[in-house]
Amino acid sequence: MAYSDKVVDHYNNPRNVGTLDKSSQEVGTGLVGAPECGDVMRLQIRVNPETQVIEEAKFKTFGCGSAIASSSLATEWIKGRTVEDALAIKNTDIVKELSLPPVKIHCSVLAEDAIRAAIGDWKKKNGVAETETAPAEAKA
């Protein structure tokens, strides 16, 4: 199957590969997997406690090119956003950006799940209540 240029680019030059200190109070870790293909994806964020802005995002993904590209793109997108803002990213945005074919849509779902899991972990660590669809402005 032919990958789109953007997928190939992210696959060959993945952005933000790496690890953040899992035990840090400011770091949220999301680990998700797709049973159908055995892909596993870890996405980590470091959040500024004052501004709730994601200042750093790292990922490590074992899986196909689309899974790697999806998580690479996800880290690029969430960096500089507030956590609430980052939650607004939908897997369909990733599909569109990377021109993923239907059989690879689950890779984008995985990336969105990873963002949510990382933010969820950070919120739990910091005692922030889960909000489902809070717009970014709602947070002071």
């Binding site: 680990l31 998700v32 049973p35 159908e36 870890r42 074992f62 689950h106 799940d113």
Partner: peptide
């Protein structure tokens, strides 16, 4: 079963063997 449903937008975390993820990740490393 398997990847027949992978084309759909599906989220059901119970399907992912969560207890294994940590080990799977380590093993892949």
């Amino acid at each position: 079963i398997g990847d027949e449903h992978s084309g759909k937008d599906r989220r059901d975390p119970s399907r992912v063997p969560a207890d294994l993820l940590e080990e799977v990740f380590e093993l892949n490393m």
